[in-house]
């Protein structure tokens, strides 16, 4: 875990007013630790992406957030209240889609929503019909409302699940893989829906194993890996935290290597191009990299060497610089780097 990850800083410095806040949240199943000391900090009004490969503990974390499973250790605060102790105050304000939709197959979509809405004493029966209709409308299911769920496609069930989460006014929506099984059109609609909900002040906590999804709809994100929280923060912070590297095109490769080594940068040899050789060098030591940091070096500032300093040094050493670019890691590279796995690879 990157100690400098901005998210981690904000989690420790701001402890009031967070919509979701956990400390040391841990879940053990026997000897296996499914969730290990997770400190989540979800600011109000955010669309918070909860990223991680399958099996990284996302759903277990969500279960603990909602009081479905008890935590082995640690605390959960939702909307400023302790969970699961005050679930009867918290949960009416939370809409949830947990690990896929689940409905009574022998009931119609409308009947299912009626039942779930009637399951709690915190809803007003008088407005139930209107609220159910509105929620079905919101997810575009009005046409199939009276069909038995048995006959629904996966995508329709997914929509119905989201409709259930939207039955009442919610301050927080927890959506576990909301676009699972949806066609591209449906995915776009969900994305749109989430954004519009967020604009109305609802905090949305979306889990996904698809980075692109998070990238497109979220303001904040956390990345889970093997039960641990690898990083969290706003998307901008996460992107910035990714390491940058310089790409240098020069015919004087040997000389350039020497200069870069003098700056404390490791470089790799890239492909050979008409203009000379390409050298790649990480500008800042990536998380866990041991070699690159030189403390006290005049050129090192906050762990990153400025691009202009490098070019100046190179030129001063007589290296012909035919091309120079600083490349920042994409969120995707960062995700892979943090989780250490490819997408969709279960542990």
């Amino acid at each position: 875990m990157n100690p400098d990850a901005p998210g981690a800083q904000s989690a420790s410095s701001v402890s009031y007013g967070l919509t979701i806040e956990t400390h040391g949240l841990t879940k053990r199943f026997g000897r296996q630790v499914a969730v290990d000391g997770v400190d989540l900090a979800v600011p109000p009004g955010s669309v918070f992406g909860f990223l991680g490969p399958n099996g990284s503990g996302k759903t277990t974390t969500i279960r603990m957030l909602l009081g479905l499973a008890s935590a082995s250790a640690g605390t959960v605060n939702l909307l400023g209240m302790e969970m699961p102790g005050r679930f009867h105050e918290v949960l009416p304000r939370v809409g949830a889609l947990v690990e896929g939709p689940a409905f009574y197959p022998f009931l119609s979509g409308v009947a299912n929503l009626h039942r779930l809405d009637a399951a709690t004493r915190h809803t007003v029966p008088a407005t139930r019909r209107a609220r159910v209709d509105r929620a079905l409308d919101q997810v575009g299911l009005a046409h199939a409302a009276n069909k038995r769920v048995h006959a629904y496609s996966l995508g329709m069930k997914q929509r119905l699940g989201i409709a259930n989460a939207l039955l009442s006014h919610r301050d927080l929506l927890v959506l576990d893989e909301p676009t699972n099984g949806l066609d591209p059109q449906g995915t776009r609609e969900v994305r749109h829906l989430v954004r519009s909900l967020a604009q109305n002040g609802t905090t949305v906590f979306v889990s996904s194993h698809l980075l692109a999804e998070v990238d497109q709809m979220c303001t904040h994100a956390a990345i889970m890996s093997a039960g641990k929280l690898a990083a969290q923060g706003s998307l901008a912070e996460l992107r910035r935290a990714g390491s940058a590297r310089a790409r240098l095109l020069t015919p004087d490769a040997a000389q350039a290597r020497k200069v870069l080594a003098g700056l404390g940068l490791n470089c790799e040899t890239g492909d050979v191009q008409p203009g000379g050789e390409t050298l790649l060098a990480a500008l800042a030591p990536a998380a866990g990299a041991s070699s690159a940091r030189i403390d006290g070096s005049p050129t090192a500032r906050s762990g990153e060497i400025l691009a202009e300093d490098i070019v100046a040094q190179l030129v001063a050493a007589g290296v012909r610089v035919r091309g120079f670019a600083v490349e920042r890691e994409s969120l995707e590279d960062r995700f892979v780097a943090l989780t250490g796995e490819g997408f969709d690879v279960a542990q």
């Binding site: 040391g24 250790a73 302790e82 699961p84 009867h88």
Partner: peptide
């Protein structure tokens, strides 16, 4: 249901104790 909730409040361990207990 209400009683269930208050019962949990009083025994809730805020930090890191084994919550299975």
């Amino acid at each position: 249901m209400g009683s269930e909730a208050t019962g949990t409040d009083s025994t809730f361990q805020p930090h890191g104790k084994r919550r299975g207990g």
